[in-house]
Structure formats: C-alpha cells, structure tokens
Design a protein around this nucleic acid. Sequence first.
DNA 1: CGACTAGTTGAGGCCAGTCAATGTTGGTGG
DNA 2: CCACCAACATTGACTGGCCTCAACTAGTCG
Lengths: 257, 257
Amino acid sequence: MVPDASQLADAASPQPIGGARVSIDDLRAVCSGCSMRELCMPFGLDADDLAQIDTLVGSRQRHKGEALYDTGETFDALYAVRVGSLKTAVLAEDGREQVTGYHMIGDILGFDGMATDRHVSRAIALEDTDVCVMRFERLQLLAQRVPALQSNLRRLLSREISRDQSVMLLLGSMRAEARVAAFLLDLAERYRRRGYSSTQYVLRMTGEEIGSYLGLKLETVSRLFSKLQNEGIVRVQGRNVALLDPGALRQLCAARE
Amino acid sequence: MVPDASQLADAASPQPIGGARVSIDDLRAVCSGCSMRELCMPFGLDADDLAQIDTLVGSRQRHKGEALYDTGETFDALYAVRVGSLKTAVLAEDGREQVTGYHMIGDILGFDGMATDRHVSRAIALEDTDVCVMRFERLQLLAQRVPALQSNLRRLLSREISRDQSVMLLLGSMRAEARVAAFLLDLAERYRRRGYSSTQYVLRMTGEEIGSYLGLKLETVSRLFSKLQNEGIVRVQGRNVALLDPGALRQLCAARE
DNA sequence: CGACTAGTTGAGGCCAGTCAATGTTGGTGG
DNA sequence: CCACCAACATTGACTGGCCTCAACTAGTCG
C-alpha cells in the first residue's frame, strides 16, 4: 500500500498539479487497470482507447475538509473519485452554502465549470480522498480522435442534468420525511451499483450537510432519522446506517405528494 | 401564414418529423440568417461553420399546451426556441409534475435525453411556439468536423447544469418571497439579454406552473404578487408584469437567508 | 481534562399549505 | 355582440409542518 518513491521518475507518469501531495497513487491512475472504469467511462471504449486515456490521467489527493476546487477558480480539469467522497455546493451571496451533490467512488465531477471556464460550485472532501485528474484541454483533444470518448463525455454531462432534475423534484415537491427516505434510497442504489451493500453503509455527510442537500434544517433531519428508527425502518448508529425496511422507505417517498 | 406546399419539394429542406404541422417556416430554419444565433451558438462559429449547420436544422411547431417531447420518448434531437416559449417538467410517480424550467426565444432544450437516449422530462408549449430541430445524429457527425460546434455543445450542457444548481439553491434555501423575487429578476435578466425590456414583460406560465417551479402553491404565489404590488415593488395586471423597483427585489433575494 | 464539534430532544412560533368562497379573464357559440 | 362557461386568480380563515431557540449529551482531539 505504501509507495516506492523511485517510481516517481517514470517518464510516462503525468505531472502532479499545483501543490497537491504526491504518492505512488499518482503512478497508478491508469484507467486501463482501474476497476472503476465502467463507472467513469461506461460505453464503447476498447483497450486501445483506454491506453490513450491513460496518458492524460493524473491524480490528486485531498484530506477531509479540503477543497478539490472552489467557486470562481479556473476550470481546467474533470475529476473522477477513486477513493473517498466529496460534496459539491454552491454559495449564496451571504456565504451560506447549499449542498448540491454527494459524490462517491467512480463519480465524475467538475462539469459545472465548462460553461464559463470557472467553477460555479465548490467540491470539498468529506474524508481523505483520491481523485483522478483529467486535464480538460487534453481530454478535449483526445475526444476529437476518439468518438466513443466524446460520446461518453456527453452522456456524463447529460446524466448530471437528469440527476439535478430529480433533486429539483425532491426539493420542490416532497415533504421532509419523503426527502430523507429518497436520500437514503438513492445512496443505497448507488452503493449497490458499485458492488457494495445496499442495506448497510456509512454516511459521510454531517446532519447539517444532509439538511442543506435536502433543503431541511439539521434538527429536522435528526428527528426524522429518530422517527424512522423508532418505526423499525432504519437503524442509525452514529454514521452507520442500516436500511431494515427499504419497502417502507419507498412508500414514504411516494406518500402524500 | 399558411404554407405554399409546392416548396416542400425543396431537396435542401430537412424532412418534417413525426406528425408535426408543416409551414413555410420549415424552409427558413437557417442559422446563418437567424438573429438569435448568438444565443444558440455563441462562440467561434464562422460563416462557413454556420452554413454547414444550416443543412441539419429543421423546424417544428407546437400549439399552446402541446408537447414538444414527452417523458420516455426517444431522444433524437435538440431544439432551439425561435418563437414562443415552453416549460419543461419532470413527473413524480403519481403523475404530478414538477416544473424544472422555463424556456424562451433562443434557449436550447432537450439535453436531458442525451444520457439514456430517452427524455426524462417533458417540454410543453406555453403558447404557439416554433422551434428549430437539430437532429442529434447529424449534429454529432458535424461536431466531429467542427471543433467550435463541439465546444459550444459542451458549453450549453454545462450552462444547463449551472442553471439547475441555481434552482437547487433557490429551492433549498430561500423563503417564498425571495423565491418569487429571484424568479422575477431571472426573467428580467433573460429578457434583457435578448434585447427586450427588463422591467416589463409578459408571464407565460400560470400561477400554478410558477408555483411548481418555485416549490410553492399557487395561492402563495398569488399572495406574494399581491404583497409586492401593495409595496409598490411590482405591478401585475393579469400576465403583464412591471418591475417598479428592481433594487428592492434584489434585496428580498438576499434577505433572511 | 477541557474545548470543541456533532447529534438529540423539547417547547413554541411562524411561514406556507389547505380548504373554501368569490372574482376575473378569455375563449366559444348563439 | 353578448351570454356563457371554464380556467385562472384572489383573498380569508385556519391548520400544521418545519424552523428557531435552547438545553443537554456523546464523542474527539490536543
């Protein structure tokens, strides 16, 4: 698990960027050997395409609480989560933040900066986190030669849009309890797709962050967790969540709308 | 207003699609002569690029209340609003709809279908509306040869994402009055950018639709319009809105967050 | 151990939802 | 042109869900 520093001389390795810490992981950010590549680049890339992508993928690490990118910063790369998790958030004028997303292993983020070349949101590591860095300029050049990559990029962008629209549906028309239920089920489904348990996982966001994401106050989130626990639908111990009755959660999502 | 059917034989004209009505406008959907092209395709396209785009742009018309596309339908085109306006909405399981966007002249819509090849939202004409139809397959092929078009497409997708994130901020953290104020200012700004008055415009959505968009009930929207009117900040007569004191609206947006 | 952060729970208030009655507008056909 | 109808908007009274404020607990890290 610990790096062999001599490998840093490897000429094929992409440059570490900015002031980020460097480790052996920088040298292993190769999509062709990555177990998560089906998540990042799901469609139609053959081994040859992947080998080309390898040449442009770097790596970066962030400790808990550190920003991967911040509002207003120049957009120059997309990021894929390799280890850990992050939240994204936008800022109101008064500095308060609205959490807009939770990103786990295999998720790609950074798309928000493509329109204006500056990020309009920020991404903060929720735990110690490694990301693959794909310099956008190089990605763009490569995509011109690899149509499957081009098409994947578009799909990822569009997926982001449909995801945002579901959140709008949640924020605009669901009651607090339904929002919490939908949140728990969404996480379950995303863990399931990644091969983890869909009935037992660890929350990485604080109650306040979950509240911000769901348009609720932290006290409300806490109360609803307690309520769901009393009803035997979930078990919450600290940040460990167990979904005891996913069916009941699904009913809550639909109820009373 | 009624077409000269003989011109339908024009070989250069794109095929009308599906059961849409056909008119002379089908033959005039050429970007190179369109006053709105800076909105649709804002960056770096020269006359030659535009001429190529012309070859793939068709046209479609919808009467008030008709769907341009519906949830679940196959995604095969992007649309640019030439005349009129539309709302987009996603559906909850029970059939109720959450309005996710309001689209006016020069806006491009349809991006939500790119991820899965099926639309996850629907687009409904709010008045009699003409749109340019850009078949996605052909757009994609052309984009491979015209990097500026590729780049514009990405920017438009990304812009959609940042737009959705502002809506999430609005829904997640603003009070009802602030939501209404932000809504009115957003429309003002968008009309301004299109060369229309930013202090006087016509609302095309009903109170219920505005409420759905803002996560409020129609009664609440109505009450707040009345309140703003009593305070001398706006004047609302039917669907005609006049912003008498935009500064006060801006203050309301920021207040109490 | 003390300071700090995060979570839990209660009491009370207020904002927005709900229900209901009435007014207004716009389209249609006699 | 006007009568009619349906859709939309307005306003009031009341309710209730979520927020606010606050006190307390548990866990963490120097």
